[in-house]
Amino acid sequence: MSRQMSSLLAIAAVCVTLTPAPAFAAQTPKKAPVDCEQVKCIALTFDDGPGKYAGTLLDTLKKYDAKATFFLEGQYVKSRPAYVKRMVAEGHEVGNHSYSHPDFTKSEAATIKSEIQKTQDEVKKAAGVEPKLLRPPYGMADLQVSDIAAEFGMPMVLWTAGSEDWKTKDVKAIQKQTLAVAQQNGIILMHDWVKQTVDGMPSLIKTLKNKGYHLVTVSEVIKKENLEPGDIYPVPAGWEK
């Protein structure tokens, strides 16, 4: 072997020895799912969107590591698909709230089915998923609506209490009402088209967290209910399952 070749081999050996082993990227540990039977949970739900303030709301939810559920109208999903895509990407839940918000109890079966299906299609187009939960417009349902929801494989989820944001449109009033009706495994009705709701959300989330609440999706709150397609929860007064 030539001296030059020996030198080259020696240099190569030194380089191999000195080359550090590839560093493995640090793995971010996955957060354990919240068990709402063990901790205090509450689900904030936003109807009729995505509204034009949804981006600001999503920024706030991300900042405070809070999850929410958005019951979407297909007509607004169609006009604001990027918000829906972001909702799903950031771990929020999306539900079906019809396409154009008619009263299902005053609608023909074909209309109800069309309203649900068109919204399913728009959400799938925007975010690649289909909602698993239905919230009928105005919270109005009857046995026909229940049967159609069952055909779509969807339980219906209403709310335990409302923020009354659509009526007051006042930050302090919305916060006060929400805190007054907050309860363990509560489902709170809100709207992301109400600017005052979105404006007051940072303070409201901080207060709820200080009170020990975990802000989770509706599905986490209702998990223990084992709802079947067509079931409604909470059950309205006078409703027969």
Rank of each mutant, 00 (worst) to 15 (best):
T69A: 07
I188T: 04
M154K: 06
A161G: 13
T17I: 11
A23R: 14
V16S: 12
M190A: 04
K106F: 13
E108Y: 09
K172M: 07
M1F: 15
L227W: 07
Q175V: 07
G95L: 03
E115S: 08
K167F: 05
V181I: 13
L143T: 13
V94F: 01
D142C: 11
P81G: 06
A43I: 08
K125G: 11
G186S: 07
Y64I: 09
Q183K: 15
D35T: 12
G74S: 01
A149V: 00
H101Y: 05
A89Y: 09
T69I: 11
D231Y: 09
P22G: 09
D170I: 04
D35R: 12
A54I: 00
E225R: 11
G162Y: 00
I42A: 02
P29E: 12
A23V: 15
N210C: 09
T160F: 01
S2N: 14
A150S: 11
D142A: 06
D35M: 13
V181Y: 06
V16T: 11
S98A: 08
H214K: 12
M154G: 01
H92P: 04
I205F: 03
D103T: 01
K209H: 12
Q117K: 15
S100R: 05
I188C: 04
K206C: 06
F24E: 13
M5F: 12
T160M: 01
S79F: 01
F152L: 05
G212C: 06
E220P: 04
F70I: 08
G238N: 10
D199A: 08
T60A: 03
K206E: 14
S107P: 11
A12V: 13
A126C: 14
E93H: 10
E115C: 10
T168L: 08
V88K: 05
I148A: 00
I112K: 01
Q175A: 09
A161L: 05
P33Q: 15
V181T: 12
E220S: 08
L134N: 05
Q75H: 09
T217M: 06
Q196C: 11
T56H: 12
P229Q: 12
L133Y: 14
V145H: 00
T217P: 04
T45S: 15
K78S: 07
K62T: 14
L134F: 15
V39E: 10
L61P: 03
K241A: 07
S219R: 10
